[in-house]
Simulated scan of single mutants.
Amino acid sequence: MKKLILKYLTNSIDDIELNKLQDWLKEPKNQKIFKDFIIDDFNLNRMHNKVDVDTAFNNVLENIASKPKVIPLYKRKIFRYAAASLIAILISIPFLFNKAKTDNNNPIIVNNNIKTGTDKAILTLEDGTSVALEKGKNYTIKNIASNGEEIIYKTTPNANKKVKVNKASREIAYNYLTIPRGGQYHIKLEDGTQVWLNSESKLKYPVTFIKGKTRKVELVYGEAYFDVSPSENNQGSKFKVITNNQEIEVLGTEFNIKAYKDEDNIYSTLVEGNILIKSNLYENILSPNQQTIINKNDNTVNLVNVTDLYSITSWRKGVFSFKDMPLNKIMKVLSRWYDSEVIFVNKDTENILFTGILDKNQSIEEILFSIYNTNNIKYEINDKTIIFR
């Protein structure tokens, strides 16, 4: 078992060996052996006398049972989904970072002002008033309530009889929820529909839906995961999501839309149920695990079968999952969450493929170091800019 522990700590463990190690760790006595081995062989008490090893190890065991596997980015395909869920112990204890300090080709940290993303959004009310929603900050007005992590629109008692109307435009009153870079937010609409919004996204939606009429919202830009309240719970009314290049009609389902302003394609991926996609002359009903890709430049539409649904939707569950993805695309995703700029001086590094699962609570330095440690890709952090040399 010591050989397996060493293979795990050196990132050379495969699926079968990992399963054997995890089964072995189910016994409390083996957990103690594992912990003592790390302390004795790596002198963690001497090197990191401020580290609470017991707390770190307990966190590892909890991660095995309750959290997705956190897998650092690896270039070699042997680690595709084989790296240990126990990797949290190497994140909790700065062992790798101290080891790297002896390397003459260290990453350069000039001034790191890159913060890990968090729950935050800007709520724009129908009168134009903007409210900053932040983690740990409560906000309540009329039928709207936010606890800093999500915002909930409650059904008003007279919602079936009267709909709030903007007198100036004689239209239904809309709110906007804007998620900045470095943010995320969850919203529950008045009809019970839930929407998770990723960084750099904006949603337009009615304060109150007209009962029996088609419910419409607009993803102005960005990425959103929808869990739509079924029509039978809303007097038979359909639900539609509008983007700049398409319309999605649903009856009760879950799906993901990725429609960023700085990307050429719009990706709509069905998780459960059925959706009807309409874009120019294109019209098609999607089945689960199908995805449409709309090119915004020429409006062409491709329908594909998705083999890795988890990588598309994992962002709303607190992790980023990448499977054989080039580094430049990985960094585009991460730059939104960490509100940073990325520059590739060495263009050869842009297309190196990596696979891994990253915890969204990790610092950017932890993630970048796993990239560096795998392929020796030197990087520099200066203020809020990441430069790959």
Rank of each mutant, 00 (worst) to 15 (best):
L281C: 03
S279I: 04
L309R: 06
G222A: 10
L334S: 07
E254P: 00
Q246G: 01
K261G: 13
V271F: 04
N256L: 03
S231E: 07
I293M: 08
I312T: 11
V304M: 13
K332I: 05
E263P: 02
E263R: 12
N265G: 02
I330C: 06
E283K: 15
T307V: 11
S229C: 09
G236C: 06
T253M: 05
Y260M: 01
Y267K: 14
S229D: 05
N289T: 11
M331W: 12
D227P: 00
Q235F: 12
R316G: 10
S279V: 04
Y260W: 05
Y267H: 09
R316Q: 15
N245Y: 14
N297A: 08
T269C: 08
Q290Y: 09
Y267N: 14
I266H: 01
L270S: 05
L270A: 07
E254M: 11
S231P: 02
K238N: 13
Y260K: 01
S231T: 03
S237H: 01
L281G: 03
S321Q: 10
G252M: 07
V250L: 02
N245T: 10
V304D: 14
L281F: 10
W315I: 00
N305Q: 14
S287W: 00
F226L: 06
F226G: 02
T313G: 06
I266C: 02
V241L: 11
E283Q: 15
I257R: 00
N328G: 00
Q246W: 05
V306T: 08
F226Y: 11
